[in-house]
Simulated assay, not measured.
Amino acid sequence: MRLATAEISLAALDHNFKRVKEFAPASQIMAVLKANAYGHGLVAIAKRLSSADAFAVARIDEALALRAGGLVKPIVLLEGFFEPQDLPILLANNFQTIIHHQSQLDALMNCDLDGMLTTWLKIDTGMHRLGISPEQFSKAYQTLSQCEHVNPNIRLMTHFACADDLSNGKTQQQLAVFSELIADKKQQTCLANSAAIIGWPDSHGDWVRPGLMMYGVSPMLNKVGADHGLAPVMRLKTRLISLRVVKKGEAVGYGSTWTCPIDTIIGVVAMGYGDGYPRHAPSGTPVMVNGKQVPLVGRVSMDMITVDLGLETDAKIGDQVILWGPELPVEVVAQCADTIPYELLCNITPRVDYHYIE
């Protein structure tokens, strides 16, 4: 019996990539594959995204895994490099690097390379995480331009803090800061993540970098993927492994945190925080059993959750249980668990079996 399985729909991935193109038809697409392609499988997803113009990952080990998997497209390191000794590795593997700090500029100026690196100069327009400050931009750009180890076609980037909220004016402020700074530069730009691709078309630039939306999940507040014409790529599913009658007043699970209000049948599901299901999901979080939505009850255990099936259930041991997927948006589960869909998708553990389907 196949138990905890992440079923990955490659057809849905294709559909979502086409939606990115429809949202930003004039932009090149940098497909974001960090964190194991948001929990969907780094190399398998990359191989399917043959129409992407480039890939983006957070760190060099992810980029090397793509090269080891046979991927030859340009790869952008969104966190850049961390040590000067990384630079020959970047050059040998045709990795492009974000430059976001003076220490990286110093390393480039003092390195000894046999070629030139393609760089993206990241400007902090208000996120206040990574990036050169607006006051530093002119000097940093000049330094990169004068570096013999840097391709003169320096690309320019920023990141939005509040693009998921269309009522927040900060995105327009950041866009204005960026536009003013680069007004006299004839270089390629990349500003828009998934939320900006959907909600802020003025930000699309020469490149867009879709992440969450490629996997069929909404990056916007209080929305689900279907609201944007996206299709969920992952269906996390498992099986019922036990059924038992529990009487009114009896408690279920660790800590006895949930007590039956009436006699009922409790289903035990082979899924827990050891598989990546959120331990803090409360009683009442929806779960799908045989196409019917039922509530999770009691605490999430390492290997199991319990659900209230009701006395009239026709469920039996071995029946399919869906934790999230097309039938139950991961955004809904995340909201119940007081978290975000990014975390749920990225927390899938290695013991979950991946099954890629057309």
Rank of each mutant, 00 (worst) to 15 (best):
M1Y: 13
M1W: 10
E7P: 05
L10S: 10
L10H: 06
L13P: 15
R19I: 02
V20M: 05
E22S: 06
A24N: 03
M30N: 09
V32A: 10
L33M: 03
R48Q: 13
A63L: 05
L64K: 12
L71M: 11
V76M: 03
L77R: 08
E83D: 10
D86G: 02
Q96K: 09
Q102E: 15
S103W: 04
S103I: 11
L108R: 09
D112R: 11
D112T: 09
D112I: 09
G115T: 10
G115M: 11
T119I: 11
K122P: 00
I123G: 02
G131E: 07
I132R: 03
K139Y: 06
T143Y: 11
R155V: 07
A163F: 02
D165L: 06
Q173M: 08
Q174D: 06
L175D: 12
Q188A: 10
G205Q: 05
R209S: 06
M220E: 13
N222W: 07
K223I: 00
K223H: 14
G225T: 01
D227R: 03
G229F: 05
G229V: 08
L236G: 04
R239H: 14
R239I: 13
R244S: 12
V246S: 12
A251Y: 02
G255T: 06
T257P: 00
T259Y: 00
C260R: 10
I262C: 10
I262R: 14
I266G: 04
Y273K: 09
G274T: 02
R279Q: 08
V287C: 06
V297C: 12
S301D: 14
L309P: 15
G310P: 14
G318F: 08
Q320M: 08
I322K: 00
V330C: 10
E331Y: 05
E331G: 14
A337Y: 02
T339G: 04
T339F: 08
N347A: 15
T349Q: 15
T349L: 13
R351D: 15
H355K: 14
E358R: 11
